[in-house]
Simulated assay, not measured.
Amino acid sequence: MSQRATSNRHAPIFVISVAAELADMHPQTLRQYDRMGLVTPKRQGGRHRRYSPYDVDQLRQIQQLSQEGVSLEGIRRIIALQNQVEELQDEVSALHDQLREVQRSGGSRVFAVGPHGDVVTVARGQRPRPASREIVLFRRSA
């Protein structure tokens, strides 16, 4: 999914009454889910909730899981894991883009990864510090 499509998907555009209608729920249910942290809409002016198309999709998913007998705590965990997977997929996609750019430019060192999974910048011709245990990916020369 492109960056623009992702940002449109997360754009806070619906007021609570519209989001409730789109999700086929009562607005009070959306307020309760917000208090529980199931779906956290953006706030306009600090007070008014604004829901994104992504939030509405999550509300529909909550409704479906609830009808299937999953508890609200179970639903909260499922949504948290799905959000984590999406964030990781975005990070992997960004790293793939970075890798393709380095390969196009003809660089041999691609990147180094720190002990906590963070990308570490290493100057060309330099090696990562041994004490920090970075993993370095090199491209084989043909």
Rank of each mutant, 00 (worst) to 15 (best):
residue 39 V to K: 03
residue 35 R to G: 01
residue 90 D to S: 07
residue 76 R to F: 15
residue 35 R to H: 15
residue 77 R to Q: 07
residue 28 Q to I: 11
residue 117 G to V: 10
residue 128 P to C: 02
residue 59 L to Q: 06
residue 53 P to E: 10
residue 92 V to M: 11
residue 98 Q to A: 06
residue 2 S to T: 15
residue 73 E to D: 12
residue 96 H to Q: 06
residue 70 V to P: 04
residue 1 M to G: 05
residue 133 R to I: 04
residue 122 V to P: 01
residue 65 L to Q: 07
residue 113 V to D: 08
residue 70 V to Y: 15
residue 83 N to P: 03
residue 86 E to T: 15
residue 16 I to H: 09
residue 126 Q to P: 01
residue 90 D to T: 13
residue 7 S to M: 08
residue 50 R to V: 04
residue 28 Q to A: 05
residue 99 L to C: 10
residue 118 D to F: 10
residue 89 Q to T: 07
residue 13 I to E: 09
residue 62 I to G: 02
residue 102 V to G: 01
residue 66 S to W: 10
residue 4 R to F: 13
residue 62 I to V: 02
residue 130 P to H: 05
residue 86 E to R: 14
residue 96 H to V: 14
residue 41 P to H: 02
residue 35 R to Q: 15
residue 85 V to H: 10
residue 139 R to Y: 02
residue 90 D to L: 06
residue 97 D to Y: 11
residue 79 I to V: 11
residue 29 T to K: 02
residue 47 R to E: 05
residue 84 Q to I: 03
residue 26 H to D: 08
residue 97 D to W: 13
residue 87 E to L: 06
residue 31 R to T: 04
residue 20 A to H: 10
residue 90 D to K: 07
residue 97 D to R: 12
residue 14 F to W: 14
residue 104 R to I: 08
residue 141 S to M: 04
residue 24 D to H: 14
residue 110 V to T: 08
residue 76 R to E: 12
residue 119 V to Q: 10
residue 15 V to P: 11
residue 12 P to N: 07
residue 108 S to R: 00
residue 3 Q to M: 05
residue 66 S to Q: 12
residue 4 R to K: 09
residue 39 V to C: 02
residue 141 S to W: 04
residue 77 R to C: 00
residue 14 F to H: 10
residue 132 S to T: 14
residue 141 S to T: 13
residue 8 N to C: 02
residue 126 Q to I: 01
residue 15 V to W: 08
residue 120 V to W: 11
residue 131 A to E: 13
residue 87 E to Q: 07
residue 48 H to L: 03
residue 56 V to I: 08
residue 72 L to M: 06
residue 131 A to T: 15
residue 73 E to L: 06
residue 11 A to V: 01
residue 139 R to G: 03
residue 47 R to G: 03
residue 116 H to V: 06
residue 87 E to K: 08
residue 8 N to L: 06
